[in-house]
Design a protein around this nucleic acid. Sequence first.
DNA 1: ATCAGATGTTGACACTGATTACATACCCGC
DNA 2: GCGGGTATGTAATCAGTGTCAACATCTGAT
Lengths: 179, 179
Amino acid sequence: MSTSDRPYHHGDLLAALLSAAETLLDEGGDGALSLREVARRAGVSPAAAYRHVPDKEALLARLAARGFAAFGEALGRAAAEAPGSALDAMGVAYVEFALARPARFRLMFGPLTARATDEVLGAARREAFAVLSGVAGSRAASLRAWGLVHGLAMLLLDGALPSDDPVALVKEVLGVTGA
Amino acid sequence: MSTSDRPYHHGDLLAALLSAAETLLDEGGDGALSLREVARRAGVSPAAAYRHVPDKEALLARLAARGFAAFGEALGRAAAEAPGSALDAMGVAYVEFALARPARFRLMFGPLTARATDEVLGAARREAFAVLSGVAGSRAASLRAWGLVHGLAMLLLDGALPSDDPVALVKEVLGVTGA
DNA sequence: ATCAGATGTTGACACTGATTACATACCCGC
DNA sequence: GCGGGTATGTAATCAGTGTCAACATCTGAT
């Protein structure tokens, strides 16, 4: 029962850092998020982060892993809600996720994760993809579906496909019979 | 007749900067390239770059525009060399370009170009895409082809599709009858 | 109660992008 | 030819970043 608002020991700083970083990513999103700003948000000195994470890159890897977990869950939910046309529903959910959280999505599929030194990240990513591959059929069909939605999501994120209603565009391309 | 190797005035610094930046991008490529390092490579002080470019972002935009020019050219060449199956050839060329110059490709389709404040860049990008759209047929078919190859390229770049022979994988997915 | 280890702080270093004030070289009009 | 104006370069500086080492503080096991 200390009277100080913030005790010396935070309690669960790593979680607070990750949460602050996600907020940062989702709100500003314009550029790269700085470790210092994350620490500031968590109400802690910059160096404190290094007690919980070896590196800024490692923190980003954890964020990406978190992202893949939420991503896989969203895909699974979409598939469950439309058992008849699971693949199309997942495709739409794929793009919707990307558009709703651009910075997180870009981080998940960025050069940092490409280096893939973090094994937790790799597992999370594989698991998310397994959800998608499970409903696609053959290997080639699975890759085709995956590549297509991923490409559409990326192009929309980059503004290469200007569209008032991106989701409608995706449905058109996928041949989803609307409603 | 100065004995100094490098005259005070460089002659064409902007070109030298862009060239140096491209070299940097293509060799290290791991992270973001710094304006200072680019200037160092060009044998010039960091501030000199600001005489030719208002911003680091503007320099990157120019690089991306250059990239789109080379990209469109590569696509056009591929189409010309395989008149029978232009679309497939362009798809393969699309991925090959991305894999040969990962950093440049990522820059071209990155958040910087998404902001698209630079109009030259936007024009270059549209032109590259026009090459692709020209051979695809309907709008939906064009978007489908484009999204697919773009997605495959990105996933391969991110190491999400580990493959010994990425190009073969792409051909398989595209259904290209090899040789 | 004490002491070891975990956790957080302070201060520093090297680096970055960006701006400013100043120096130099080139070029055009005379 | 030459002198001034302008384009182009430099050096110095500022704020912000990732990272580290040294120090301070808390917490739990013995």
